[in-house]
Design a protein around this nucleic acid. Sequence first.
DNA 1: TATGAATGAGATTTCATTCAT
DNA 2: CATGAATGAAATCTCATTCAT
Lengths: 193, 193, 193, 193
Amino acid sequence: MSPRTSEQYQHIRDQSRKLIKNSALVLFSKNGFSSTKVDDIAKHAKVSKGLIYNYFSSKDDLLKEILADATLRGQKVIEKIERLDLSARERLKYLVEYIFDMMQEDFEYWKLVNALSYQEDVLELLSHTIKEYLEKMISIKTQLFKEIGSPDPLIDTYSLSALLDGVFVQYIHLQDNYPMTQMKKHILETYLK
Amino acid sequence: MSPRTSEQYQHIRDQSRKLIKNSALVLFSKNGFSSTKVDDIAKHAKVSKGLIYNYFSSKDDLLKEILADATLRGQKVIEKIERLDLSARERLKYLVEYIFDMMQEDFEYWKLVNALSYQEDVLELLSHTIKEYLEKMISIKTQLFKEIGSPDPLIDTYSLSALLDGVFVQYIHLQDNYPMTQMKKHILETYLK
Amino acid sequence: MSPRTSEQYQHIRDQSRKLIKNSALVLFSKNGFSSTKVDDIAKHAKVSKGLIYNYFSSKDDLLKEILADATLRGQKVIEKIERLDLSARERLKYLVEYIFDMMQEDFEYWKLVNALSYQEDVLELLSHTIKEYLEKMISIKTQLFKEIGSPDPLIDTYSLSALLDGVFVQYIHLQDNYPMTQMKKHILETYLK
Amino acid sequence: MSPRTSEQYQHIRDQSRKLIKNSALVLFSKNGFSSTKVDDIAKHAKVSKGLIYNYFSSKDDLLKEILADATLRGQKVIEKIERLDLSARERLKYLVEYIFDMMQEDFEYWKLVNALSYQEDVLELLSHTIKEYLEKMISIKTQLFKEIGSPDPLIDTYSLSALLDGVFVQYIHLQDNYPMTQMKKHILETYLK
DNA sequence: TATGAATGAGATTTCATTCAT
DNA sequence: CATGAATGAAATCTCATTCAT
C-alpha cells in the first residue's frame, strides 16, 4: 500500500472526529452526560476507545466541542435575524418559524443543551454562553414587539419565549406524537395576527 | 438505662429518613443524580454514609423513593381539581393558580423530575408515572376547555400546557429574576378572559 | 416491680449467652463464619444486636467461645476412653460407637469445626487444639490396635480414621438420607471382628 | 504502530483470565472465599484490581467460573471410567487410582470445592452439580461392585466412598505428612483383593 | 492512524462495633 | 439488662484515562 497523502489523512481525521462527536451527542442527549460511558460512545461509533482519546483530550472536552457546535448554531440564528431586511412583523414571524425548524433539525443538540442546562455543576462554560444567547434573544424579541406596537413588549417576549420553550419540552417527550405544525400555526396566529 | 420505646425509635427513623431524602433531593435537583455522590448527601445531611444505607438499599433506591413522593404530590393535584365543586372556568383558573403555587412550593421536586425526565435510562418507573400524569392532565384540561366553549379545546390545552411548562423552565433558570406574578396574571387573562 | 436478685440476673445472663451462642453456632455451621452477619445472629436469637456485645466482646470472641465448648467435648471423649476399664477390643468398639453418637448429637459443632478446619487463616487457636486432639486420637487408636494384635496398627489407625471422617463428611451432605446405622455396624464388623 | 491482531488480543485475554483464576483459586482454597479480598487476588496475580473486573463481573462470578472448571474435571473422570474397556475389577481399580491422582494433581480445586460444600449459602449452583456428580459416582461404583460379586454392593460403595473422602480430608490437613501411597495400596488391597 | 488490555483514583456498599437511652 | 440508630473502616465495584503494539 502506498502511503496516504496528507489530504487523505486529514479527511480520515475529519470523518472520525465527526463520527465520534455524533455518537457522543446522541448518547449524551439520550442518557445524560454522566451516565454515558466512553465505552458506550466507542461502541456506538464502532471505534476503539483509544481513538476517542486521539481526537479529544477527555470526555469533558468532547462535551465542550459538541456544545461549541451548538453555540455556533445559536449565533447563526441571531446573525440571520439581524441581517434580515424585513419588517418587524415579518422578522418575528421568521424567527418563530426558524426556531421551529431548528427544534426539529437540530433536535439532538437542543435536547442535550436543554438537559444540561438544569445542572449547575456541568460546565460554567455552558451557562455563560447560554445566558448570553438567551439575553440576546430576549432583547431582540422585545425590540421586535416594540416595533410592531405591542402594549407590553416584555410580557409578550416572556410569554412567547415560554411558549416556544414549552413546545420544545413537550416535543422532547412526545416527539412524533406532538402536533408541531398545528402549534406553529397557532403560535403565529396568536402573536402575529 | 432502659431502651427507648418503639414510638421513639420510629420517630428517630422517620426524622432520619426525611433528613436524608431532603438532602438528596436538594443535591440531585441542583447537580443531577449521577454527579451527586453519596458522600455529598451524607455531608449535607450531617450524617454518616453508612446511615444512608440503613434506610435506603442503594442510591438508586433513594432516588426512587424521592420520585415516589413527587408522584404523590402530582396525584394530589389531580384529585383536588376533580373534587372541586366549581364552574369549568373557575376550575381552570384554580388549576393554573395551583400549578403556579406548586412550581414555587415544590420547586426542588419539580426541578428534579424535570431534569430526570430527559434521561431515557434513568428509571422507566418515572417515565411510566409521568406519562400517566401528563395524559391525565391533558384530558382534564381538554374537558375544561370544552366546557367553557373553546373552539379548539385540544390546541388550547396544548398551548396552555406548553406555556406553563415554558414558564417553569424559565423560572428554573432565572428564579427570583423571573416575573412570576406577572406571568400568572397574564396567563389567567389570556386563557380565561 | 421489685428488683431482681443477683441469682435471677445470673440466670438471665446464662440464658442469654446460651441463646446467642446457639444461634451463632447454627448459623456459622450453616453458612460459614464470614458469611454470617452479627445481625443475622441477633435476628435468629430474637435479641438485639447490642445484647450480643454485652456478652461477647466481638464476633471473633463469640466464635472462640463456641470452639472452646467444642474442644471441651473433644477432651471429654478422650478422658472417657482412657478411664474405661475394658479390654482393648471393647474400648475400640466403644470409641467407634461414641464417635458415631457424637456425630449425631453434636452435629452442629462438628460440622462447624469441620468447615473451619479448612481455612488456614481462621484462628490458629483452633488449628492448635485440633492438631493436639487429632494426634491424641491417633496415638490412642494405634495403641488399641497394637493391643488387639493388628499386624499394621498405624495403617489400621489411619484407615479407621479416614473411614470415620468420610462417614461424617457424607453425613453432613446427606444427613437423614445417609445409612448411619448400617455404616456403624459395617465398620464395627470390619475392624473388630 | 499498528494494533495487535485479534489473535494476539485473544491470547492476552486468555492468559490474564487464567492468571486471575489461578490466583483466586489458590487464595480461595487457602483462606476461604469470604476471607479472600479482591485486593489479595490482584496482588497475588500482580495485576490491578480493575483488571479483575474486566474479566469477571464480580467476585461471585469469579468463584462461579472456577467452580465450573472444577465441575468439568469431575465430568471428565466419569466419562473416562465409562469409556474404559476393562473388566469390572480393573475399572474399579482404575477408578480408585484415578481419584488418588486427582486428589494430588487438582489439589487446590478439590480443597476449595470441599470447603465450599459445607456452606449452604454459597452457590446453589455448586450444590446442584455436586449432587449430580456424587450420585453418578455412587451409581457407577455400585454397579461395579455388583459386577465383581460383592455381597452388599451399596454398603461397599458407601464405605469405599467414605474411605476415599476421609483420605482426602486427612490429606488436606496433613499434606506431605500423610502416607498417601500406603493408603492407596491398602485400599486397593482391601477392596480389590 | 487505530486497538483494546491495563491501570488506579474514586465511587458505592457492607458490616462489625459503639453509644445514647 | 436491653435496644437499635449511628458510625467508619474496609470491602466491592466503576470507569476515565494511559499505553504498548
